[in-house]
Nucleic acid binder design. Structure first.
Length: 303
DNA sequence: AGGCAGGTGGCCA
DNA sequence: TGGCCACCTGCC
Protein backbone atom coordinates (compact mmCIF):
# COMPACT_ATOMS: atom_id res chain seq x y z
CA UNK A 1 0.00 0.00 0.00
CA UNK A 2 1.92 3.01 -1.24
CA UNK A 3 1.25 6.68 -0.78
CA UNK A 4 -0.43 6.80 -4.17
CA UNK A 5 -3.28 4.64 -2.96
CA UNK A 6 -3.95 6.64 0.18
CA UNK A 7 -3.58 10.18 -1.18
CA UNK A 8 -6.29 11.65 -3.37
CA UNK A 9 -4.46 14.81 -4.33
CA UNK A 10 -3.47 13.49 -7.79
CA UNK A 11 -5.29 14.64 -10.88
CA UNK A 12 -7.94 12.46 -12.45
CA UNK A 13 -7.32 10.97 -15.86
CA UNK A 14 -9.73 11.22 -18.73
CA UNK A 15 -9.39 7.78 -20.27
CA UNK A 16 -9.67 7.00 -23.97
CA UNK A 17 -11.59 4.02 -25.33
CA UNK A 18 -10.70 0.40 -24.59
CA UNK A 19 -8.78 -1.18 -27.45
CA UNK A 20 -7.67 -4.67 -28.36
CA UNK A 21 -4.21 -5.80 -29.38
CA UNK A 22 -3.27 -6.90 -32.84
CA UNK A 23 -2.75 -9.73 -33.11
CA UNK A 24 -5.30 -10.36 -30.35
CA UNK A 25 -3.92 -11.29 -26.96
CA UNK A 26 -5.71 -13.86 -24.81
CA UNK A 27 -4.69 -14.56 -21.23
CA UNK A 28 -6.19 -16.05 -18.10
CA UNK A 29 -6.55 -13.83 -15.08
CA UNK A 30 -3.73 -15.49 -13.19
CA UNK A 31 -1.37 -15.41 -16.15
CA UNK A 32 -2.07 -11.71 -16.64
CA UNK A 33 -1.19 -11.17 -12.98
CA UNK A 34 1.98 -13.19 -13.39
CA UNK A 35 2.94 -11.23 -16.50
CA UNK A 36 2.39 -7.79 -14.94
CA UNK A 37 3.24 -8.43 -11.32
CA UNK A 38 5.46 -11.50 -11.32
CA UNK A 39 8.86 -9.89 -11.14
CA UNK A 40 9.43 -8.72 -14.70
CA UNK A 41 8.06 -5.26 -14.07
CA UNK A 42 7.48 -3.49 -10.77
CA UNK A 43 5.17 -0.79 -12.09
CA UNK A 44 1.73 -2.47 -12.25
CA UNK A 45 -1.05 -2.53 -9.68
CA UNK A 46 -4.66 -3.53 -9.60
CA UNK A 47 -6.91 -0.50 -9.48
CA UNK A 48 -8.81 0.01 -6.24
CA UNK A 49 -12.50 -0.75 -6.50
CA UNK A 50 -12.36 -1.69 -10.16
CA UNK A 51 -12.35 -5.42 -10.32
CA UNK A 52 -9.69 -6.84 -12.59
CA UNK A 53 -8.33 -3.58 -13.96
CA UNK A 54 -4.55 -3.16 -13.90
CA UNK A 55 -2.79 0.19 -14.15
CA UNK A 56 0.86 0.60 -15.03
CA UNK A 57 3.53 2.94 -16.26
CA UNK A 58 6.40 2.61 -18.70
CA UNK A 59 8.27 5.51 -20.17
CA UNK A 60 5.79 8.38 -20.22
CA UNK A 61 2.90 6.03 -20.92
CA UNK A 62 0.13 5.49 -18.39
CA UNK A 63 -1.85 2.37 -19.28
CA UNK A 64 -4.84 0.44 -18.00
CA UNK A 65 -5.53 -3.19 -18.86
CA UNK A 66 -8.50 -5.47 -18.42
CA UNK A 67 -9.73 -8.86 -19.52
CA UNK A 68 -12.86 -9.12 -21.63
CA UNK A 69 -15.28 -11.96 -20.92
CA UNK A 70 -13.63 -14.27 -23.43
CA UNK A 71 -10.16 -13.63 -21.98
CA UNK A 72 -9.05 -11.12 -24.57
CA UNK A 73 -6.77 -8.44 -23.13
CA UNK A 74 -7.86 -4.83 -23.69
CA UNK A 75 -5.95 -1.66 -22.96
CA UNK A 76 -6.63 2.06 -22.79
CA UNK A 77 -4.56 5.23 -22.54
CA UNK A 78 -5.41 8.70 -21.27
CA UNK A 79 -7.22 10.41 -24.15
CA UNK A 80 -4.75 12.25 -26.33
CA UNK A 81 -1.73 10.96 -24.41
CA UNK A 82 0.54 7.97 -24.79
CA UNK A 83 1.28 5.79 -27.76
CA UNK A 84 -0.67 2.75 -28.94
CA UNK A 85 2.33 1.41 -30.79
CA UNK A 86 4.54 1.71 -27.71
CA UNK A 87 1.99 -0.34 -25.77
CA UNK A 88 2.04 -2.97 -28.51
CA UNK A 89 5.83 -3.04 -28.41
CA UNK A 90 5.91 -3.24 -24.60
CA UNK A 91 3.74 -6.34 -24.75
CA UNK A 92 5.98 -7.92 -27.35
CA UNK A 93 3.45 -7.85 -30.15
CA UNK A 94 6.28 -7.71 -32.68
CA UNK A 95 7.43 -11.18 -31.65
CA UNK A 96 6.06 -14.53 -32.76
CA UNK A 97 5.51 -16.07 -29.34
CA UNK A 98 3.97 -19.27 -30.65
CA UNK A 99 7.11 -19.91 -32.59
CA UNK A 100 9.39 -19.03 -29.66
CA UNK A 101 7.36 -21.27 -27.36
CA UNK A 102 7.46 -24.13 -29.81
CA UNK A 103 11.24 -23.81 -30.10
CA UNK A 104 11.70 -24.49 -26.38
CA UNK A 105 12.69 -28.09 -25.56
CA UNK A 106 9.30 -28.97 -24.03
CA UNK A 107 9.10 -32.20 -26.00
CA UNK A 108 12.03 -33.65 -24.09
CA UNK A 109 11.70 -31.67 -20.86
CA UNK A 110 8.66 -32.77 -18.88
CA UNK A 111 9.07 -30.26 -16.08
CA UNK A 112 9.30 -27.34 -18.50
CA UNK A 113 6.28 -28.68 -20.36
CA UNK A 114 4.22 -28.75 -17.15
CA UNK A 115 5.24 -25.20 -16.21
CA UNK A 116 4.29 -23.98 -19.69
CA UNK A 117 0.85 -25.59 -19.44
CA UNK A 118 0.29 -23.96 -16.07
CA UNK A 119 0.90 -20.45 -17.44
CA UNK A 120 -0.44 -20.48 -21.00
CA UNK A 121 0.41 -17.33 -22.91
CA UNK A 122 3.07 -16.09 -20.50
CA UNK A 123 5.65 -14.01 -22.36
CA UNK A 124 8.48 -11.58 -21.83
CA UNK A 125 7.67 -7.88 -21.62
CA UNK A 126 9.86 -5.51 -23.59
CA UNK A 127 10.38 -2.71 -21.10
CA UNK A 128 12.29 0.55 -21.63
CA UNK A 129 16.00 -0.06 -21.10
CA UNK A 130 16.83 2.63 -18.53
CA UNK A 131 14.03 1.98 -16.13
CA UNK A 132 14.59 -1.77 -16.36
CA UNK A 133 18.20 -1.26 -15.32
CA UNK A 134 17.06 1.03 -12.54
CA UNK A 135 14.51 -1.44 -11.13
CA UNK A 136 16.90 -4.35 -11.10
CA UNK A 137 19.59 -2.25 -9.44
CA UNK A 138 17.02 -1.86 -6.66
CA UNK A 139 16.21 -5.56 -6.59
CA UNK A 140 19.17 -7.02 -4.75
CA UNK A 141 18.15 -8.81 -1.54
CA UNK A 142 14.65 -7.37 -1.77
CA UNK A 143 11.26 -8.94 -2.34
CA UNK A 144 8.91 -7.86 -5.10
CA UNK A 145 6.72 -5.74 -2.80
CA UNK A 146 9.71 -3.77 -1.58
CA UNK A 147 11.18 -3.28 -5.05
CA UNK A 148 7.83 -1.89 -6.13
CA UNK A 149 7.84 0.53 -3.24
CA UNK A 150 11.28 1.81 -4.17
CA UNK A 151 10.30 2.29 -7.82
CA UNK A 152 7.11 4.09 -6.82
CA UNK A 153 8.82 6.30 -4.30
CA UNK A 154 11.54 7.40 -6.70
CA UNK A 155 9.03 8.07 -9.47
CA UNK A 156 6.72 9.92 -7.12
CA UNK A 157 9.39 12.19 -5.77
CA UNK A 158 11.40 12.88 -8.89
CA UNK A 159 9.34 11.84 -11.93
CA UNK A 160 6.62 13.42 -14.00
CA UNK A 161 3.08 13.20 -12.61
CA UNK A 162 1.05 11.20 -15.14
CA UNK A 163 -2.19 11.43 -13.17
CA UNK A 164 -4.27 8.83 -11.36
CA UNK A 165 -1.52 8.34 -8.79
CA UNK A 166 1.11 7.27 -11.33
CA UNK A 167 4.47 8.83 -12.05
CA UNK A 168 7.05 8.33 -14.77
CA UNK A 169 10.55 7.06 -14.04
CA UNK A 170 12.67 10.24 -13.82
CA UNK A 171 15.64 9.24 -15.99
CA UNK A 172 19.38 9.11 -15.29
CA UNK A 173 20.20 12.81 -15.38
CA UNK A 174 17.58 13.64 -12.75
CA UNK A 175 18.79 10.74 -10.60
CA UNK A 176 22.39 11.88 -10.99
CA UNK A 177 21.35 15.33 -9.75
CA UNK A 178 19.30 14.24 -6.75
CA UNK A 179 22.22 12.27 -5.34
CA UNK A 180 22.69 9.25 -3.14
CA UNK A 181 21.24 10.68 0.06
CA UNK A 182 17.85 11.45 -1.52
CA UNK A 183 17.77 7.95 -2.99
CA UNK A 184 18.43 6.43 0.43
CA UNK A 185 15.34 8.27 1.60
CA UNK A 186 13.40 6.26 -1.00
CA UNK A 187 14.21 3.05 0.93
CA UNK A 188 16.97 1.99 -1.44
CA UNK A 189 19.49 1.36 1.32
CA UNK A 190 22.98 0.47 0.05
CA UNK A 191 21.54 0.19 -3.48
CA UNK A 192 21.37 3.99 -3.55
CA UNK A 193 25.12 4.04 -4.12
CA UNK A 194 24.76 1.79 -7.17
CA UNK A 195 21.90 3.80 -8.66
CA UNK A 196 23.71 7.03 -8.06
CA UNK A 197 26.90 5.68 -9.60
CA UNK A 198 25.13 4.31 -12.68
CA UNK A 199 23.20 7.57 -13.04
CA UNK A 200 26.42 9.57 -13.08
CA UNK A 201 27.90 7.33 -15.78
CA UNK A 202 24.82 7.01 -17.98
CA UNK A 203 23.60 10.60 -17.83
CA UNK A 204 26.82 11.42 -19.68
CA UNK A 205 26.61 8.55 -22.12
CA UNK A 206 23.71 8.88 -24.54
CA UNK A 207 24.36 5.80 -26.63
CA UNK A 208 25.12 3.20 -23.98
CA UNK A 209 21.71 1.67 -24.64
CA UNK A 210 22.38 1.58 -28.37
CA UNK A 211 25.72 -0.16 -27.86
CA UNK A 212 24.06 -2.78 -25.63
CA UNK A 213 21.21 -3.36 -28.10
CA UNK A 214 23.60 -3.71 -31.02
CA UNK A 215 26.08 -5.98 -29.26
CA UNK A 216 26.02 -9.75 -29.07
CA UNK A 217 24.53 -11.16 -25.89
CA UNK A 218 27.89 -11.89 -24.33
CA UNK A 219 29.41 -8.51 -25.15
CA UNK A 220 26.28 -6.69 -24.01
CA UNK A 221 26.42 -8.54 -20.71
CA UNK A 222 30.04 -7.48 -20.22
CA UNK A 223 29.15 -3.87 -20.99
CA UNK A 224 26.43 -3.89 -18.34
CA UNK A 225 28.63 -5.62 -15.77
CA UNK A 226 31.10 -2.77 -15.92
CA UNK A 227 28.49 -0.62 -14.18
CA UNK A 228 28.51 -0.44 -10.37
CA UNK A 229 25.97 -2.75 -8.76
CA UNK A 230 25.44 -4.76 -11.94
CA UNK A 231 26.50 -8.37 -11.58
CA UNK A 232 25.54 -11.34 -13.72
CA UNK A 233 21.97 -11.61 -12.40
CA UNK A 234 21.04 -7.96 -12.86
CA UNK A 235 22.73 -7.88 -16.27
CA UNK A 236 20.72 -10.90 -17.41
CA UNK A 237 17.45 -9.35 -16.20
CA UNK A 238 18.17 -6.10 -18.00
CA UNK A 239 19.09 -7.92 -21.20
CA UNK A 240 15.99 -10.11 -21.03
CA UNK A 241 13.33 -7.61 -19.94
CA UNK A 242 14.80 -4.35 -21.20
CA UNK A 243 16.85 -5.20 -24.27
CA UNK A 244 14.97 -8.01 -26.02
CA UNK A 245 17.80 -10.52 -25.64
CA UNK A 246 15.79 -13.66 -24.99
CA UNK A 247 18.79 -15.94 -24.60
CA UNK A 248 19.55 -14.31 -21.23
CA UNK A 249 18.91 -16.74 -18.39
CA UNK A 250 18.78 -14.88 -15.06
CA UNK A 251 19.61 -17.12 -12.11
CA UNK A 252 18.04 -15.99 -8.86
CA UNK A 253 17.20 -17.99 -5.77
CA UNK A 254 14.02 -19.42 -7.34
CA UNK A 255 15.74 -20.60 -10.47
CA UNK A 256 18.58 -21.98 -8.38
CA UNK A 257 15.98 -24.00 -6.47
CA UNK A 258 14.36 -25.54 -9.56
CA UNK A 259 17.61 -26.20 -11.29
CA UNK A 260 19.04 -28.01 -8.32
CA UNK A 261 15.90 -29.98 -7.47
CA UNK A 262 14.68 -30.88 -10.97
CA UNK A 263 17.75 -30.63 -13.19
CA UNK A 264 20.28 -32.07 -10.78
CA UNK A 265 22.43 -28.96 -10.55
CA UNK A 266 22.64 -28.86 -6.74
CA UNK A 267 25.76 -27.04 -5.61
CA UNK A 268 26.39 -25.35 -8.96
CA UNK A 269 27.43 -21.72 -9.01
CA UNK A 270 24.91 -19.25 -10.40
CA UNK A 271 27.04 -18.47 -13.44
CA UNK A 272 27.38 -22.17 -14.28
CA UNK A 273 23.63 -22.61 -13.98
CA UNK A 274 23.18 -19.65 -16.34
CA UNK A 275 25.46 -21.30 -18.91
CA UNK A 276 23.60 -24.58 -18.53
CA UNK A 277 20.32 -22.69 -18.99
CA UNK A 278 21.36 -21.09 -22.24
CA UNK A 279 22.75 -24.39 -23.52
CA UNK A 280 19.74 -26.51 -22.53
CA UNK A 281 16.88 -24.11 -23.31
CA UNK A 282 18.38 -22.46 -26.38
CA UNK A 283 17.91 -19.06 -27.95
CA UNK A 284 14.78 -18.25 -25.92
CA UNK A 285 16.20 -19.53 -22.64
CA UNK A 286 14.86 -16.47 -20.83
CA UNK A 287 11.32 -17.40 -21.81
CA UNK A 288 11.83 -20.88 -20.38
CA UNK A 289 13.27 -19.29 -17.26
CA UNK A 290 10.09 -17.25 -16.86
CA UNK A 291 7.92 -20.38 -16.90
CA UNK A 292 10.16 -22.18 -14.40
CA UNK A 293 10.30 -19.08 -12.22
CA UNK A 294 6.53 -18.55 -12.21
CA UNK A 295 5.90 -22.17 -11.30
CA UNK A 296 8.50 -22.20 -8.56
CA UNK A 297 6.90 -19.15 -6.95
CA UNK A 298 3.49 -20.78 -7.27
CA UNK A 299 4.81 -23.82 -5.40
CA UNK A 300 6.25 -21.70 -2.61
CA UNK A 301 3.04 -19.70 -2.18
CA UNK A 302 1.02 -22.91 -1.97
CA UNK A 303 3.25 -23.88 0.97
C1' DA B 1 10.66 -9.60 17.89
C1' DG B 2 14.24 -10.75 14.92
C1' DG B 3 15.80 -13.07 10.85
C1' DC B 4 15.92 -12.75 6.24
C1' DA B 5 15.43 -11.13 1.44
C1' DG B 6 15.03 -12.25 -6.63
C1' DG B 7 22.73 -9.53 -5.29
C1' DT B 8 27.24 -7.26 -5.59
C1' DG B 9 32.00 -6.25 -4.58
C1' DG B 10 35.93 -6.86 -2.04
C1' DC B 11 39.08 -9.58 0.56
C1' DC B 12 41.23 -13.81 1.82
C1' DA B 13 43.32 -18.59 1.12
C1' DT C 1 38.84 -19.89 -8.64
C1' DG C 2 36.06 -20.50 -4.46
C1' DG C 3 34.05 -19.00 -0.22
C1' DC C 4 32.72 -15.60 3.13
C1' DC C 5 30.99 -11.21 4.65
C1' DA C 6 29.40 -6.43 4.86
C1' DC C 7 26.14 -3.55 2.85
C1' DC C 8 20.58 -1.06 4.40
C1' DT C 9 16.14 -1.68 5.98
C1' DG C 10 11.30 -2.99 5.86
C1' DC C 11 8.27 -6.97 5.74
C1' DC C 12 6.57 -11.58 7.10
Amino acid sequence: MGVAQTCFCFFRVNWGAWQVFSPPLYLGNDVLGELLDGGQSFRWNQVDGEFAVWQGVFGRNLVQLRLAGDGEVEFRLPSGRGSDSEVQKYFGQDQDWEKLIDALPWRSDLHLHECMERFPGLRILRQPFGETLFSFLCSSAKQIVQIKQCCLEVAQRFGEDLGSGSYAWPGWSVLADVGERALRDCKLGYRARYVSGVARVLSDDDDFETRVLESSFKHAKNLLMELPGVGAKVADCVLLFGAGKLEAFPVDTWVTKVMSRVYGLAGWKAESIALFGTAHFGSAAGLAQQFLFADERRLSKKG
